[in-house]
Computed example of a mutant assay.
Amino acid sequence: MHIYIAYTAVGIILLHPALIVLPRYLEGGIRPWDAFVTMITDLGNLGVVLGLIAWVLLLILSAEMKLRAALMRTESRCSHYRLDYPDLDDENWRAWINIYQGDDGAM
């Protein structure tokens, strides 16, 4: 159940600027790129700026988790090809890798 909540939250974070805020700026008759730049640089619209910062932080966190999981595997799988381990190893690695945060804050 928690995965559906997470996907919904990320979807809202990603779509909110594009579907709700940007059209408000476009009503003024300016070009879409100018509207986007105005939207993210207007400090009076702090919710959008904080939303974009949260979105970037989620992307960085996701990239770090994927990289750590890929480096942990001693095999090649799908698009994660490793020169040092070029073959599949279903016996040991046909599984999900769950990454958790430790007490020290490290993954």
Rank of each mutant, 00 (worst) to 15 (best):
H2R: 15
I3H: 13
I3N: 12
I5N: 05
Y7L: 14
T8Q: 13
A9K: 14
A9H: 05
G11W: 03
L14N: 04
P17N: 06
P17W: 03
P17G: 06
A18W: 10
A18V: 15
I20W: 12
I20N: 07
V21W: 01
L22F: 07
P23H: 12
R24Q: 13
Y25I: 02
Y25G: 02
L26K: 03
L26N: 02
G28K: 11
G29A: 09
G29M: 04
R31I: 00
P32W: 02
P32S: 08
P32Q: 00
A35S: 08
V37T: 15
M39A: 11
I40M: 05
T41W: 06
D42C: 10
D42P: 06
L43M: 04
L43C: 01
L43A: 06
G44V: 01
G44T: 10
G44N: 13
N45V: 04
N45Q: 12
N45H: 11
N45R: 02
N45A: 07
L46W: 13
G47A: 08
V48Y: 01
V49L: 07
L50C: 06
G51C: 09
G51H: 00
G51F: 01
G51L: 06
G51N: 05
G51M: 04
L52S: 03
L52N: 03
I53A: 08
A54P: 01
V56E: 01
L57K: 00
L59F: 02
L59R: 03
L59D: 01
I60Y: 02
I60L: 04
A63N: 08
A63L: 14
E64G: 01
M65Y: 05
K66R: 15
K66D: 13
K66T: 14
L67E: 08
L67Y: 06
R68S: 12
A69W: 00
A70C: 06
L71M: 14
L71S: 02
M72Q: 09
M72K: 09
E75N: 03
S76D: 06
S76A: 09
R77H: 08
R77A: 04
R77K: 15
C78H: 12
S79V: 08
S79H: 14
S79Y: 08
H80D: 12
Y81D: 00
Y81T: 01
Y81M: 14
L83A: 13
D84K: 15
E91S: 15
E91V: 13
E91M: 14
W93V: 01
W96D: 14
N98I: 09
Y100S: 12
Q101M: 08
D103F: 11
D103K: 09
D103R: 04
D104E: 13
G105S: 08
G105W: 02
G105N: 05
G105K: 03
A106Y: 07
A106N: 10
A106H: 11
A106E: 10
M107V: 09
M107W: 13
